[in-house]
């Protein structure tokens, strides 16, 4: 008769890991942020932030308005460099290489970005998605790239018969998925999303969330969201920021059930923010 311990091991073999058991430290990191301080002029808005972005996982940044989560997201593709008087110190690496030592145009091809409000170009659905590959020189026929990207963005079935219609004729939710398809068309290694569902209705939000869950196995994703339930539903790791400081960074199930810091607990249970 096998011992109880052995039995439980063999009975559990083949089952997926329990939620919350994966730790960020056990996972290979696609990006690393180290001792990041960020300033708009004299005003410091991020304080000594260090965290790793796990490869092929979805990391959520949450916190009250003005906590610095969007600023942190924007440093990941060096968008802060377009803001006058903005400066930072500290280090951010992508696959171990400093992002600040790379050619910015080349670097941004590796990092896709989707914004709060859908911002399709005033072009056809096809041309929106084909825009990036056309500029960068696609290795495959454009029609293949467009179809593959629209499929990955879960939009293909809805638009396949109207690819040459204006993107503006799509609904808000479809426009946002088009923007995700456009970002995916250049095959980014990391996808950054800044409140991607805040302008969408609940059904469109559900579609985008479903899409993110599907995408994360093939793409590293970082999302900023005001919606804590959304972070809980879609992310693997969650970082809670408050007043520019990283308060807690944990596997998502852990952060939302047993947060280690009382400030995290107060925020996620609605006691402030």
């Amino acid at each position: 008769m096998p011992s109880t311990a052995n039995s439980s091991v063999s009975l559990a073999a083949g089952l997926p890991a329990s939620p919350g058991r994966e730790l960020a430290g056990e996972h290979s990191m696609r990006m690393n942020i180290s001792k990041l301080n960020f300033y708009y002029g004299e005003k410091q808005v991020l304080f000594d932030i260090s965290l790793g972005v796990a490869a092929a996982r979805l990391t959520a940044l949450i916190g009250p308005s003005g906590c610095g989560k969007s600023t942190l997201l924007r440093t990941l593709n060096r968008m802060h460099e377009t803001v006058r008087n903005a400066r930072l110190d500290g280090e951010i690496t992508l696959d171990g290489q400093s992002i600040f030592l790379q050619d910015v145009t080349q670097f941004r091809r590796r990092i896709g970005m989707v914004f709060q409000k859908p911002n399709p170009f005033p072009k056809s659905i096809f041309d929106n998605v084909a825009y990036g590959p056309r500029i960068n020189g696609a290795s495959r026929p454009l029609s293949d790239v467009v179809e593959a990207s629209l499929r990955r963005a879960a939009l293909w079935d809805e638009v396949k018969d109207q690819l040459h219609k204006s993107a503006y004729e799509l609904s808000g939710g479809q426009q946002q998925r088009l923007c995700i398809a456009r970002a995916l068309a250049v095959e980014p290694e990391v996808l950054l999303l800044d409140e991607p569902c805040s302008a969408l209705d609940p059904i469109s939000t559900a579609k985008v969330e479903e899409l993110l869950v599907q995408l994360k196995s093939s793409c590293t994703i970082v999302i900023v969201t005001h919606n804590m339930q959304q972070a809980a539903r879609v992310s693997d790791f969650t970082a809670f920021l408050l007043n520019g400081s990283l308060i807690e960074f944990s596997p998502t199930p852990q952060l939302f059930t047993t947060p280690a810091d009382s400030r995290t607990e107060a925020y996620i249970t609605g006691r402030f923010g």
């Binding site: 339930q229 809980a232 059930t257 995290t264 607990e265 996620i268 249970t269």
Partner: peptide, 9 residues
């Protein structure tokens, strides 16, 4: 109510 943390527990 989408309860979290101590409220959920």
């Amino acid at each position: 109510h989408q309860l979290m943390a101590v409220d959920l527990r």
